[in-house]
Design a protein around this nucleic acid. Sequence first.
DNA 1: GTCTATACTCGGATAGAC
DNA 2: GTCTATCCGAGTATAGAC
Lengths: 207, 207
Amino acid sequence: MAYEGGTGSTRAAILKEARRCFAERGYEGTSLNDIAAGVGIRRASLLHHFPSKSAIYQAVFEQALADWGERISKSVDEPADPEEEGWTHVDRVLTEAVRWFAENRDFVRLVRHESLADGSHLGFDLGEALRPYFQRAVNYFEREMGAGRLRKLDPEQLIISGYGAVLTYFSDEHFLRGLLGRDPMDEKAIESRIQAIREFFRAALEP
Amino acid sequence: MAYEGGTGSTRAAILKEARRCFAERGYEGTSLNDIAAGVGIRRASLLHHFPSKSAIYQAVFEQALADWGERISKSVDEPADPEEEGWTHVDRVLTEAVRWFAENRDFVRLVRHESLADGSHLGFDLGEALRPYFQRAVNYFEREMGAGRLRKLDPEQLIISGYGAVLTYFSDEHFLRGLLGRDPMDEKAIESRIQAIREFFRAALEP
DNA sequence: GTCTATACTCGGATAGAC
DNA sequence: GTCTATCCGAGTATAGAC
């Protein structure tokens, strides 16, 4: 749990703006001036709240991963018709996940920048940190495929493919705008994307 | 066509090393010192061959896109059993493409860094530059799906999904190593990946 | 074509006044 | 907690000798 002293609001504002900047331009592409300007304070004042640039980066990730963990718990554990199984269950979790990514593009771009880098700015390994979630998903698919409720495919490879197919759309906005010649992030486009992902995975997974 | 004067070999060495560096650490993460050290000359000497850092970056992309165009022509036009159609054709082109990406990971990482960025370092829009290839693929899928030789899905969305699923594996090496707990790029792992991609798309596309 | 030397800018970080 | 002032290193780019 992060320390919350006196005026936590400045710290929160810094984290918010830093997340935006790091997501947009990556670690090297973001300067303390960029963050400070967004918050409305001076560069030196940032370093009253955090000891260094990389400390800000790490704090942004701690918060982002906490949000992610909370969201996972909600979607996978909590509600859910208990008889929900096979494709119906996958479809619901997938759809909720895609909607969350669409609404949290900063998170997606942050993760993608870090995945593409060599991890030297983050104090820990992002892949290792996400491995428990990954393993849980692998176990789920193994069970459902073994029971014949989903088509038999390699679960690890399936999840990696899904990860790439889903996250790329929301991370590479500028590229897709050029490729498609239209705005890939307006409401209608995002809804089309969600439906396309659902149909694609249904075609691949329904036995 | 790029100018080739007297000692083209230094220029070529610079481009080769620059491609490696930009692919590994992106535009901001690469310094002229990094490139110069790899070539075995001094920073100032780079600027005898290219007017600026961004000019080197642009030249790297020109060359990379030329390689890409050449490769596309070979695989799509040239050989091919003329009666090859439907999934059989897609499978061959897909497999050849994935193998090429596996062997040209610098190209993949270069493209992904640029896709994730806002395009301000490149003199042109990468998405627009690739649009003709994209349109050609879209037209192909429309034809085959219309003829009932492939399952009907949205062609644009399908290609974007494939783009994300295929390229992510070869760009996010460090992340995948942490996620899987093993080397995702050894020969066996890559062969498994290729087979998994083929099976996944076969499941989704075979009518 | 490559080098050294240098100019200039920017980024991260610290010291100390208010 | 925020500021100004300052230090230091790294980065891009240029000038000019060899």
